[in-house]
Amino acid sequence: MGTPGGDLIRVMAAGDRDAFARFYDRYAPLVFPFVLRIVRDRADAADVLQDVFWEAWRGAAAYDSARGTPEAWIITRARTRAIDRVRAVRRRGETFVAPVDEATVGAPTPPGGDAAVRAEERQLVASALAQLSQAQREIIELAYYSGLTQREIAERLEQPLGTVKTRIRLALARLREAVTPT
């Protein structure tokens, strides 16, 4: 396992570039599929990844292990940057998309689409999520991958706000069991 992630960040904060390289080598292969799952474009994902690790290098001194694990520290950054990227791409896209096409932007990929694409999608899905029910997975994906707020999720799923909040809490409890080693 080598140096714990938290120690790596502390050494990075002291300006140790080898620590940065080790930090990158440990976390980039884990963060990359996550970013790719959100932005769905390899070039965009590579850009986002570069921003995320550059910020990690610059911000290493601000890391406080009492406030969270290194994994939470890097994934929170990655999520914010990836969702920002999706929104920026969408805004740029809007100027070129004809009105009629806008209705289909949010439509799910039809079944029987490109098999290779679907196989890749499956690989990007975090395996822990596979242990949730379909409904629990959906709500976590809407919040964490799509960046929707509780109200937007309630509107999308046509469910009361209180139900959405409770469902998120229950899904997280189930997820906790899934990631806790037995």
């Binding site: 884990l30 969270g68 975090a126 822990a128 997820l175 906790r176």
Partner: peptide
Amino acid sequence: DTLARAMLSA
């Protein structure tokens, strides 16, 4: 932490 570990499990 739960979310981070879950999201990094692909």
